[in-house]
Amino acid sequence: MSTEPRTVTINILVTKPLEIDEPDWCVDPHTGANFRPDIAHNGPEIAASFETALGTVDYLRAWISHAPYVALVSEPLPIVAVEVDAEVMALDPDSLRAFTATTRAHLDALDLLADEADRIRGEAR
């Protein structure tokens, strides 16, 4: 058995403040980022709201977002985050336009359902 002192290298987490550029559209307080890839700039949120008998329902939340230190991001520029049914989609401008076109078509279909419901209700009277 050797009497020489032994050493081992251990990776430890060291934290220190990081100063980053802040876009003028960012409203995120930047709390909870422990690593550079956790940093995201988020703009003001918009949401559609609808009043029901049970209260207000917010849906189709969206905001501009940019995670400048995420290496696997295929779109390095800010994207639009759109939340539908608790799932967030990261869309570039062309994909967002395609999404809104699909949503408009769906809204037209909902109007047709309302017309059909009116017709059925009229027959039931």
Rank of each mutant, 00 (worst) to 15 (best):
M1P: 00
M1R: 01
T3D: 13
T3N: 04
E4P: 00
R6Y: 05
R6C: 06
T7Y: 08
T7H: 05
V8H: 06
T9L: 10
L13E: 11
L13V: 07
V14I: 02
K16Q: 15
L18I: 01
E19L: 07
I20C: 08
D21A: 04
E22T: 15
W25G: 03
C26T: 08
D28T: 09
D28Y: 08
D28N: 15
G32R: 05
A33Y: 03
A33M: 02
A33F: 02
A33D: 13
N34S: 10
F35T: 12
F35P: 00
R36M: 12
P37D: 15
I39T: 05
A40G: 08
N42E: 15
E45H: 08
A48T: 10
E51F: 01
A53K: 12
A53W: 08
G55C: 07
V57M: 08
V57R: 11
D58L: 15
D58A: 12
I64G: 01
S65L: 00
H66Y: 04
Y69P: 01
Y69R: 06
Y69D: 03
L72Y: 03
L72A: 12
S74D: 06
E75C: 07
E75G: 00
P76Y: 07
L77G: 12
P78T: 08
I79Q: 10
V80R: 04
A81S: 14
V82K: 07
V84Y: 05
A86N: 11
E87N: 04
L91I: 07
D92V: 13
D94P: 00
S95W: 04
S95P: 00
L96T: 09
L96Q: 04
F99S: 01
A101L: 05
A101H: 04
A101P: 00
T102P: 00
A105M: 02
A105E: 15
H106E: 13
D108H: 02
D108Q: 03
A109Q: 14
A109F: 10
D111W: 02
L113K: 12
A114D: 13
D115Q: 14
D115A: 14
R119E: 15
R119Y: 05
R119I: 10
R119A: 09
I120S: 04
I120C: 07
R121G: 05
R125W: 09
R125T: 12
R125L: 14
